[in-house]
């Protein structure tokens, strides 16, 4: 066995926090987090490239989880960018809002996870629609950069307000009863909730892809992306479509937030560091293709997980390094068209 830093990669719970400063923060160890009760004793141990299978598959699972969030968020960014020509810097804050809404619903209204999975995206998506009507709609004719600056400002406001009321430490969110526990797969222990997150986000991503690429509604959307004036001439209400698209993209971010709530603590800055990584994912994938965003998101999550096993020092930076390499070799991104 390779010598590692204490606690690194030995248990499934060890390094799943995507925040770079996590190791400097006092980790709130709530009783709700203990979804894995020392599974190591139960499963067979074997080694791959000198790495215990537990550590390897555990990190790969964490990679897939992070990849699910990268995919959901970059998908939302790509959808919004396609219609609005705006990079939504508020995306991270909206992801955080999704997690907080789920938390409020549970704490204050007793509404459980399953309902929150539907209600939170709708509520947050609705705030997105308000933002679009109030601010963004006036910026389409201007330089792209103003959209970026405006959404950046909004992200600061939202994060500031939440930090002011909820501090910087995380709030725990309980895993729903139906998904407690896990499966012993022999070579690793698979917590049910994590399996659910990977499967469900993949399903949401594929459904989004299907709607945009294979249905009439998606055809309208793609047509409006190419030539809004012409689509309007056919009697389709493009401004309303733009508003709803923004709402939908924001709802996707909030959905990711709800799913993240039981895994990571619900905290005001959970979105702001994630969004920068997601930007890098978007640059790597290129925003031209929906499937590209999904594949890149999951793929980079896996690569990040592998890096945590084999070269933990680089796990924070590996995605940025890949971004630089991709830009040198293929400036338009892996799936992108030249912009």
């Amino acid at each position: 066995m390779r010598s590692k830093r204490p606690g690194e990669g030995l248990t499934i719970e060890s390094t799943d926090d995507p925040h770079p400063l996590a190791r400097n923060r006092v980790r709130a160890t709530s009783p709700f987090q203990g979804e894995v009760t020392s599974p190591i004793g139960k499963t067979r141990m074997f080694e791959i490239f000198g790495i215990p299978s537990q550590a390897l598959f555990g990190q790969l699972l964490i990679g897939l989880i992070n990849g699910s969030f990268y995919a959901l968020l970059s998908l939302g960014l790509a959808v919004i960018f396609g219609m609005l020509n705006i990079i939504n810097f508020t995306h991270g804050a909206q992801y955080m809002m999704g997690a907080f809404v789920a938390y409020f619903l549970l704490q204050w209204a007793g509404i459980n996870y399953w309902a929150a999975l539907v209600i939170a995206p709708i509520l947050v998506g609705f705030t997105g629609i308000i933002v679009e009507r109030l601010f963004l709609q006036w910026l389409y004719k201007l330089d792209h950069l103003y959209g970026l600056l405006l959404t950046f400002g909004l992200a600061l406001v939202i994060e500031g307000v939440f930090r002011n009321y909820f501090g910087s430490s995380g709030l725990p969110y309980r895993i729903p009863d139906a998904l407690q526990g896990g499966q012993n797969l022999g070579f690793m222990f698979l917590p049910n909730y994590r399996a659910w997150v990977v499967v469900f986000s993949l399903a949401v991503c594929l459904a989004t892809w299907f709607v945009i690429e294979r249905t009439r509604l998606g055809a309208y959307l793609r047509a409006a992306t190419e030539n809004p004036t012409l689509v309007r001439a056919f009697g389709i209400n493009v401004p309303r479509m733009i508003t709803l698209t923004y709402g939908f993209g924001v709802a996707l971010a909030a959905l990711a937030g709800v799913m993240a709530a039981p895994i990571y603590n619900v905290s005001p800055q959970m979105g702001s560091h994630l969004i920068i990584v997601v930007f890098a994912v978007v640059v790597i994938g290129g925003m031209g293709s929906i499937m590209g965003a999904i594949v890149t998101g999951f793929g980079l999550g896996l690569i990040e997980g592998l890096t945590k096993v084999f070269f933990p020092e680089a796990s924070n930076t590996v995605i940025f390094i890949i971004m630089a390499i991709v830009l040198i070799i293929r400036p338009a991104g892996l799936f992108g068209r030249r912009v």
Partner: peptide, 27 residues
């Protein structure tokens, strides 16, 4: 690296590269 893309991508790339160097500074 960054001037290979224009507009919004340029902003995102410079942000990502800066974040990468932030992690180097941490470590």
């Amino acid at each position: 690296i960054a001037i290979r893309r224009q507009g919004i991508y340029f902003a995102m790339i410079t942000l990502a590269l800066a974040q990468m160097m932030f992690f180097f500074a941490v470590q």
